[in-house]
């Protein structure tokens, strides 16, 4: 399917690669279909581009690259939404990346509201970590390959 985007022009995504976010991301409840795109080949950064809103896109990164001990708990409601009844196999956790306003050299990751993606089923949910000391603005260090 052809997906118009304001950042990347029109992109072509196989329909079976579209990720469905039943509840939307927090603040964007109406956008439920996204495409996961590598920023560049081999880059640790990906884009989460809304299929039905050309302006809406998030940068995602593997949180383990920001915080090696990063752990989250997926509760039963999250498992239901993600269709993960038994195990967490195929579950990929990503976090959104932001440029700190006023200090463009610093980029940060939202470790408090990770995006959990069930890759085989193409289902995602933004998880809210209630009992957590993680920050929504965790500094991202230089990433070494």
């Amino acid at each position: 399917m052809k997906v118009p985007t304001s950042r990347f022009g029109t992109i072509d995504i196989p329909e079976d690669q579209v990720i469905y976010v039943p509840l939307g991301l927090i603040g964007f409840p109406n956008q439920k279909r996204y495409a996961l795109l590598e920023h560049r080949k081999g880059s640790p950064f990906s884009w989460f581009q809304a299929v039905d809103d050309e302006d809406l896109a998030f940068v995602l990164i593997d949180p383990l690259l920001c915080e090696p001990d990063y752990q989250i708990q997926i509760n039963s409601e999250d498992r239901k939404t993600l269709d993960l009844p038994d195990s967490c196999e195929g579950l990929q956790t990503m976090v959104t990346v932001n440029i700190t306003p006023g200090d463009p050299l610093k980029i940060t990751a939202n470790l408090l509201g990770p995006v959990a993606i069930n890759l085989p089923k193409k289902l995602a949910k933004q998880i809210v970590l209630h009992q957590s000391s993680y920050s929504t603005r965790h500094p991202i260090p230089i990433i070494k390959r």
Partner: peptide, 9 residues
């Protein structure tokens, strides 16, 4: 998280 999402978008 709402504010961070809006900013990150």
């Amino acid at each position: 998280i709402l504010e961070e999402n809006r900013s990150a978008s």
